[in-house]
């Protein structure tokens, strides 16, 4: 009995030391990780709508979006939000920027786990750049009668991105007061 207590104690000491070290490292890295994530999001937003002031909002549907205003004139420049939908093998998250007329300014795929070589090609500029300037009615993949040229061999991924964009834009557009002013 005593022997097993001793074994348990030794194991406990090892675990305690290991957790202590881990806790210390965590306090060092956690802020850096959080900062990086926030920075990446801010950078993505600013790349879509440059020189703007962002204000966080939430739509009735529960979508978090950012209202972009000109810092000087207070004019609404557009909106950005993260559209997400289930693709072929993962949830594809797309950062979207639209102008005040809800025309797409640009999109950027920020997270996806689609098939390498097929769906994963959605991060390539050749795919994402085509969205710029599209209106709500146009954002359908070509097979669904829209103008989005789908990735070869990855219609499901392309369709999921197009659909999530469209739904997000409708969501923001349908806000009774997207600009937040009275």
């Amino acid at each position: 009995m005593k022997y097993y207590l001793k074994l348990g104690l030794i194991l406990f000491i090892f675990c305690a030391v290991a957790s202590g070290i881990l806790a210390y490292i965590n306090t060092l890295t956690a802020p850096v990780i959080a900062e990086r994530k926030a920075l990446a999001e801010i950078q993505a937003r600013e790349a879509l709508i440059p020189n703007a002031e962002f204000e966080e909002k939430e739509s009735d549907q529960g979508l978090t979006y950012y209202l972009a205003k000109d810092p000087e004139t207070d004019e609404i420049l557009g909106y950005t939000f993260i559209a997400a939908d289930l693709g072929y093998s993962s949830t594809v998250q797309t950062m979207v920027g639209v102008d005040s007329e809800f025309k797409v300014l640009g999109v950027q795929i920020i997270d996806q786990g689609e098939t390498p070589g097929l769906g994963a090609n959605c991060t390539l500029p050749i795919f994402t750049n085509q969205f710029s300037g599209m209106t709500l009615e146009e954002i359908y993949v070509d097979k669904d009668g829209g103008v989005v040229v789908s990735l070869s061999g990855a219609t499901i991924t392309s369709r999921c991105i197009a659909n999530s964009l469209r739904e997000g834009i409708i969501d923001v557009k349908d806000e009774p007061n997207p600009g937040g002013e009275q």
Binding site: L28, T29, A30, I33
Partner: peptide
């Protein structure tokens, strides 16, 4: 943790 922080 270190990779997530410095090699994201």
């Amino acid at each position: 943790m270190v990779m997530a922080a410095y090699l994201p």
